[in-house]
Amino acid sequence: MGMRRYIAKRVAHALVVIYIVATIVFFAVRAIPGDPARVLLGGDASAEAIAALREEMGLTEPLYVQYIRWMGRILQGDLGTSVFSDQSVLQMLIGVAEPTLSIAGLGMLIALLIAIPAGITSAVKQYQWEDYVATTVSFIGISMPGFWIGIVLLIIFADRLGWVPAFGYVSFRQGIIPWLKHIILPALAVGLPYGGILMRMTRSSMMEVLNEDYMRTARAKGLDGRLIVFKHGLQNALIPIVTVAGILLGVLLGGVVAVEIVFGIQGLGRLLIASIQRRDFPAIQGAVILISFVFVFMNLLVDVLYTSINPQIKYGGSE
């Protein structure tokens, strides 16, 4: 099976996964206790006003009718309108997705920039002081929650030193430097714990590769040590590292929520929490669909990257 057929198959599979997630979310949010109409009008609203609003929102229709209509709008690219703000859910998501994806993307980049060099050094210098230092630092990073790291960074670099702003977010469209100043601390807060996880993964994968017979043969032939480690070793060790990094990026999106609260950033996580509290069904459904799309897309991207890392990989068992 060629790459194009494989990608087409994976895209079809991804669409099925997103559809299943969307269906589960649709029914799950309606199982949440509470009436959106009552939440919107307040506890003092009359029964007649609540009933009228429920009918206007389409909540009096049978559940399967609501589902069919909602799915029909989804297929047309319409995520609905927020029952709380009366704003398009798609526009709401566009407004809050940028800071969340910026934090997650830069956080993962920081994690990789720390984890891969430290993991390689730890594996090559096994049981030496470099290995002990890298391993200890990785355990410390894994043990500290992102929001706590964020608070510490906030106190040191924003409050005490005044190097960066303490709160808020500036879009990269207003300049890379202002964007980076607002995003660097939240990105470090989410990236450092995952950097510890990826460092352990890199160390383990590199140690396994370095003990392979072909690596011993390369060393016996007198090849340059750096060539052996980076050309032959890292190329094969990267496959599981990239796989775990792709999965962690999806998980990292969930970890951004607490960091957004610490730094006062209005992102996707805070929108989702507020929507759940308000019983804003369309906003909840749209946010979860967006997160599932990002997660599925990252897994698809990881699969495609495999051949770039190791061209010997053949999709579908083709030669």
Rank of each mutant, 00 (worst) to 15 (best):
L198Y: 06
K125D: 02
K181P: 03
T202R: 12
K181W: 04
I151Q: 04
S138G: 14
P117G: 10
Y194N: 13
G175H: 08
E212I: 00
A158L: 11
V137G: 07
R216A: 12
I140R: 01
I114M: 11
Q128R: 11
L180M: 10
V170E: 14
G141M: 10
Y169V: 07
A115P: 15
I183S: 13
R200L: 05
P178Q: 13
I120A: 00
I140P: 02
I140L: 08
F157R: 04
L210M: 08
L112N: 08
I155W: 10
G195Y: 02
I116P: 14
L192P: 01
A166C: 00
I176C: 01
P165V: 09
K125T: 06
I120K: 07
G191A: 15
V209R: 11
F172D: 08
F139W: 02
G119E: 09
Y169L: 05
Y194P: 11
L188A: 13
A158Q: 03
I140E: 03
T121Q: 15
L198G: 10
A166H: 12
I184T: 14
L161D: 14
G162D: 11
V170G: 04
V133M: 02
P117N: 06
A189K: 02
T202F: 01
R160Y: 07
M215A: 06
I120T: 09
Y214E: 12
S143C: 09
L210I: 12
T217Y: 00
G141Q: 08
I183C: 08
N211T: 15
V190G: 07
I114A: 12
K181M: 14
I155S: 13
I177Q: 13
G195V: 01
I155K: 04
R200K: 13
I155E: 08
P193H: 10
M206D: 13
D131W: 06
S205A: 15
F147K: 04
P145Y: 01
T202K: 10
L112M: 15
P165N: 11
P117I: 05
G168K: 10
V152Q: 02
F172M: 09
G162N: 13
T202M: 03
W179D: 10
I114F: 07
M206Q: 12
S204I: 00
P178H: 05
A158P: 02
M207R: 14
I156P: 11
Y214L: 05
I140K: 00
V170Y: 13
A218Y: 04
I176S: 03
G162Q: 04
G162A: 03
S143K: 01
I184F: 15
V124R: 03
G175S: 10
W179Q: 12
G196D: 15
P117Y: 05
R173G: 04
